[in-house]
Computed example of a mutant assay.
Amino acid sequence: MGSLTGRTALVTGGSRGIGRGIAERLGRDGAVVGVHYGSNEAAAKETVAAIEAAGGTAFPLGVELGTPGDAAALWSAFDQHADGLDILVNNAGGGTSQSFAEIEEAEYDRLFAVNAKAPFFIARLGLDRLRDGGRVINISTGLTRSAAMPDLIAYAMSKGALDLFTTYLSKVVGGRGITVNAVAPGIVDTDVNADWLRTSEQAWAGAAALSALGKVGTPADIADVVAFLASDDGRWVTGHWIDATGGSLT
């Protein structure tokens, strides 16, 4: 049996990129995985199919985050498939390429609605479903500790709010044996980054050079850290921001 057999997980933004990597890893470890998606149903179904092909169990959940009532709608959809939760991974996030001088108020509000408000209320409304001894894992970014990409100031600010939420929530739910941690990726080879990361050998080499290991991260690199925190081995780690940037901050 896998280390997570008998447990149920929900991964927001689980249909692509880092989220898909996490969903597939938790599925391989034995968890039943709710694969949330915002609009790309086909990608979510592909992720579910991949989990099932590897011998796991999963189901898709389609709810657009960052909109009024999003958390309630997500849990309503979840309740149709499962009667409780053990692992919540707040991975879904919005990004921006607009600089401080260019970003508009609507874009700023969208970033905070998806990256900070949605995880807050997903966790709050999910507490009566989350079993004692459960896990909450928030996907942050190395940019909350480094201003390496100053044009992403609003994005970093929204993830900074998520980091604080992680610390405070760990105190709120610790009495139930629930751990809460944030995992912070650096540059990861996903379709979100493809427009600039895969444009040339120079772009790839420049990104790899930021890591002490001289590599660009993969979704599996992040998923393995999440899997540790989700497992019994991670039971004594809570309230932490975990650097998963491959040494980009050293």
Rank of each mutant, 00 (worst) to 15 (best):
L88V: 06
D189C: 09
D232T: 13
R28T: 14
D232A: 15
S15D: 12
V237F: 09
F121A: 04
G93Y: 08
A184L: 15
T8Q: 05
G95F: 11
Q98K: 12
V63T: 07
A71V: 07
N91H: 12
A223S: 06
A212C: 11
V216Y: 05
S231N: 06
L10C: 02
D29S: 09
A194K: 15
Y37R: 06
V89E: 03
T179L: 09
M149E: 14
K159W: 03
A227W: 01
V183A: 04
A49D: 03
G234N: 06
L127G: 10
G94A: 14
V89N: 09
Y168W: 09
V35D: 02
Y37V: 11
S158A: 10
D70V: 09
A72Q: 13
A53H: 10
I103K: 03
A148D: 15
A207T: 01
V11A: 04
V180K: 07
D243N: 15
S76K: 12
T5N: 15
K117F: 03
G19F: 04
G84F: 01
G234M: 12
A223T: 10
L169K: 02
E52P: 02
D86W: 11
P60R: 04
T199S: 13
A212M: 14
A23C: 08
A205Y: 05
A118F: 04
A82N: 00
G133R: 07
D189M: 12
A54S: 14
S3E: 14
A116F: 08
W75Q: 07
A184V: 02
V180R: 09
Q98H: 13
A71K: 03
D224P: 06
R7C: 02
E102C: 06
D189E: 14
E52A: 08
D151S: 12
L127Q: 15
A230L: 11
N115P: 02
G217I: 02
D151I: 13
P150V: 05
A207G: 14
L125D: 13
G84E: 05
W75E: 03
R124H: 13
A205M: 04
D79N: 10
A230Y: 00
V173L: 10
A82D: 00
V63H: 10
I242N: 11
G14N: 09
G66P: 07
K171Q: 14
A194Y: 09
A9H: 04
A205T: 15
A203Y: 04
G56D: 00
S200I: 01
V237M: 15
A156Y: 07
P219T: 06
R28Q: 14
H81P: 00
D132N: 14
V237R: 04
F112V: 02
E24F: 08
N115I: 06
L213I: 14
D195Y: 05
M157V: 07
L130A: 10
H36A: 09
L143M: 15
F228I: 01
F165W: 13
T141W: 01
E46P: 05
R20N: 12
Y155D: 06
E41A: 15
I103F: 05
L125S: 11
K117A: 09
D86C: 01
E102I: 08
V183I: 08
T96V: 01
V173R: 05
H36T: 10
Q202L: 12
S140V: 10
